[in-house]
Amino acid sequence: LVRYRTISKIPQITLNFVDLKGDPFLASPTSDREIIAPKIKERTHNVTEKVTQVLSLGADVLPEYKLQAPRIHRWTILHYSPFKAVWDWLILLLVIYTAVFTPYSAAFLLKETEEGPPATECGYACQPLAVVDLIVDIMFIVDILINFRTTYVNANEEVVSHPGRIAVHYFKGWFLIDMVAAIPFDLLIFGSGSEELIGLLKTARLLRLVRVARKLDRYSEYGAAVLFLLMCTFALIAHWLACIWYAIGNMEQPHMDSRIGWLHNLGDQIGKPYNSSGLGGPSIKDKYVTALYFTFSSLTSVGFGNVSPNTNSEKIFSICVMLIGSLMYASIFGNVSAIIQRLYSGTARYHTQMLRVREFIRFHQIPNPLRQRLEEYFQHAWSYTNGIDMNAVLKGFPECLQADICLHLNRSLLQHCKPFRGATKGCLRALAMKFKTTHAPPGDTLVHAGDLLTALYFISRGSIEILRGDVVVAILGKNDIFGEPLNLYARPGKSNGDVRALTYCDLHKIHR
């Protein structure tokens, strides 16, 4: 019993810090008490220290592992850092350059016999395009090294910054494609005289377009951006097909006994025919423009016929181009109408809503002055909100995010209106959640004399007048207030005048 009563005193000691020596009952000389009392004092002292730490809000209350900052290894790049964003855009520009100039170089340097010394005699450094290609190869190699040090988000939505895990993730992902696209074939085969082989191998750079397509997928929600990307894709495919079309004609031209190829026909049409040795002929500019003209006309199913396939190889390629053109029509131009419709969806919704308003007016036989006010209010409210119901949009977000959005939407009023000066951010967040926005066209009466005042109004834009009878008592403008002081009276009061809008007004109100 003594032991039980001794232990039962522990909660009292913990909360009230009572010393055991003052209790005459606990001072009985028993061996059990002498053993338990020192333990009680020690526990009391420890609990006292913990309570003191909690009340003082000291940093040592938290466990040590929670006080440590997340460790980022040296030379690790955050995937959302500004440097990584700028670097990704730079790589994107280099990939676009590669997609345009690599097929052009591979096709127009394929057994090209233009006048001038061969590239091997001039030297590697004197070729501007080769120098640019070398810079692109170096940048792609540097990009691989950067990807080995860039964080990523795993399946659990955690940012991984450990170098080993980053390397394994990159090896399992895009490393092989990036490595093949970054191989400097110019340096590996330079001086061997195989410019045709170098041009063909350099087309491996186009593998990076797969990554670019995935990154550009984030802009699919913007109709104008999608339309622009589709047109660029169409032009890029036409450019690639033009390079292939020229390569076919250029390879067949020296081996044909009869002059029936499209390059021969082009030379005869523009007065620059090929001679018996295969030299001469149109310039590279004429060849490229004509090839691009043929691919565009074939892809769009126009086909004027002034550039036509004559050999079997050219006919087979033309059939493939027609098939590609039909697929592009289905996948690209078939979506253009939907994209344009999405661009004008706001206008369509406006006309639909206006039609419903006019049908309501016609069905209920609203008189002319009231009908005009109804239409003007709808037009003004639509121009202010673009038909978007803010309350319906915010309803799907958590309250903390709703408060931040409301604070942002009402920031101008909260910053410049005098009653809100000096208020804490928590108070402003709470008030912003209570605001209701209303609009009024010129001549609209917001409050009639004798109406119950259940709200306090803040003028965000425009001006109003307060009338008693036919006498203008006051004219209020931006950041002015009218209405009933909230919670100042037990019952809502009545208006002693009319409140009429002089201009288009936007008002925020808080109800009782």
Rank of each mutant, 00 (worst) to 15 (best):
K111L: 04
S308R: 01
G334P: 04
L134G: 03
N156E: 12
E376Q: 11
P117F: 06
P128T: 14
M179L: 13
V142M: 07
A423T: 03
S276M: 05
G426I: 01
L188K: 09
G223M: 03
Y384L: 10
Y288R: 01
G271I: 01
P163T: 05
T347Y: 07
L93P: 01
L216W: 04
E376T: 14
G396R: 08
V136D: 03
H73S: 07
V86F: 12
V180P: 08
K66P: 04
Y377Q: 10
P309E: 01
G223N: 04
A99W: 01
V210H: 11
R373H: 06
A247W: 11
Y288W: 01
A119D: 01
K272P: 01
H264V: 04
L241K: 01
C417F: 09
R211C: 01
A99M: 01
I405F: 01
E375V: 10
T150M: 01
P367T: 05
R342D: 04
V212S: 04
L428A: 12
L229W: 08
A119P: 07
L200H: 01
Y222M: 04
C400I: 03
I237Q: 01
E64I: 10
L266T: 01
P163M: 05
H416Q: 13
E157K: 13
H416L: 03
F83V: 08
L94Q: 15
S313R: 04
L207W: 09
A338M: 05
T438A: 11
F378R: 04
G199W: 01
Y288S: 01
T385I: 01
Q68E: 06
L67H: 04
G173S: 13
Y104L: 01
S326W: 07
E121D: 15
F360T: 02
R358T: 05
V357Q: 03
W245P: 01
L200V: 04
W89A: 03
F360E: 03
P117R: 14
R342F: 05
C417K: 05
Q365V: 03
D268C: 04
T295L: 05
A430D: 04
E64Q: 15
D133W: 01
V159H: 07
C427F: 04
I248Y: 01
P441H: 09
F420L: 08
C243E: 01
L229T: 05
T438H: 08
N391M: 09
G271C: 01
A392V: 08
R259C: 05
A125G: 08
Q365E: 03
E121R: 14
L266W: 01
I72R: 13
T438Q: 13
P82M: 07
L323N: 01
A155L: 12
G123D: 04
T76W: 01
I135M: 14
T102M: 08
R214L: 01
G426R: 03
F83M: 06
S297P: 01
F101P: 01
E112C: 04
I177S: 04
L93D: 01
R421F: 06
F175E: 01
L413I: 10
L374V: 14
K418T: 05
Q353T: 10
M139H: 03
A247R: 01
N250T: 11
S308L: 01
T424I: 01
W240Y: 01
F304E: 01
H439F: 12
A182Y: 01
S326Q: 07
Y219G: 03
V210L: 04
F420M: 05
T290Q: 01
S326Y: 05
S194L: 14
K395R: 13
L187K: 15
S412R: 10
Y377V: 04
H416C: 12
A106G: 01
T102H: 14
K215G: 04
C406Y: 08
G199P: 04
C406R: 08
E221D: 09
G249T: 03
G164M: 14
T150W: 01
V160G: 01
K66H: 05
R214V: 05
L206Q: 01
A247G: 01
S412W: 09
L446W: 01
A338K: 08
W262D: 04
Q269G: 01
N310E: 03
L92Y: 04
Y80H: 09
P254G: 12
S308D: 01
V307I: 15
H239P: 01
E158D: 09
S301A: 13
C232W: 01
W87H: 01
H364R: 03
S337F: 01
H79C: 01
Q353M: 03
V210D: 05
F101M: 14
H169I: 04
R342W: 09
L109Y: 07
Y97H: 01
W174S: 05
G325M: 01
I237H: 01
A242D: 01
A291Y: 01
P309M: 01
S258N: 12
P128V: 15
N335R: 08
G325K: 01
P118D: 03
N368K: 12
A107M: 03
Y104F: 14
P103C: 01
H416I: 03
L409P: 02
T76C: 04
M390T: 04
R71N: 07
W174K: 05
P309C: 01
G164I: 14
K418H: 09
T300L: 14
A291V: 01
L355R: 10
A247S: 01
M322S: 02
Q269A: 11
A392S: 08
S301Y: 01
N410W: 01
D137Q: 11
F190A: 14
E252F: 01
P254I: 10
Y384T: 06
Q253C: 06
W262S: 03
L110C: 15
I146V: 05
A69Q: 05
S298H: 03
I366W: 01
C406L: 06
C243A: 01
P82E: 03
E158N: 10
T113Y: 04
S313V: 14
H380N: 08
H79V: 01
L370I: 03
F294D: 01
L414Y: 10
A119F: 05
L323F: 03
I96Q: 01
V321L: 13
M231Y: 12
T311R: 01
Y350N: 01
Q402M: 04
Y377K: 01
T438M: 13
F190V: 14
W174H: 03
L176D: 01
T445C: 12
A69G: 11
I183K: 01
I144A: 01
P309L: 01
P273L: 01
L227F: 13
W87M: 01
L299W: 01
G267L: 03
V95T: 07
K434Q: 04
S283F: 01
F294A: 01
E376P: 01
R373N: 04
D268K: 11
T113A: 05
V132I: 05
G281H: 01
Y124A: 05
L370P: 03
L327D: 01
F185S: 04
G278E: 01
M139N: 01
H364F: 04
H73T: 11
D133Y: 01
K66T: 05
G191Y: 03
L241W: 01
A99T: 01
P273F: 01
I77A: 01
T352I: 07
N368P: 11
R165I: 04
V447F: 04
Y377S: 13
N156F: 09
S105I: 04
Y293N: 01
L207P: 12
N410Y: 07
S412L: 06
V131L: 14
C122P: 01
L201Y: 01
N368F: 05
Y350L: 03
V159Y: 03
R342S: 06
E157P: 03
A440W: 04
N310R: 01
Q68H: 13
I77C: 05
A181F: 01
V393Y: 03
I141G: 07
A348Y: 07
P369K: 04
E195P: 06
S301V: 01
L299Q: 01
N335T: 03
G223W: 12
P184M: 01
F360P: 02
I198D: 02
E375S: 04
A69Y: 04
Y274E: 01
L109C: 01
I146H: 01
R218D: 03
T113E: 10
D268Q: 13
A430P: 01
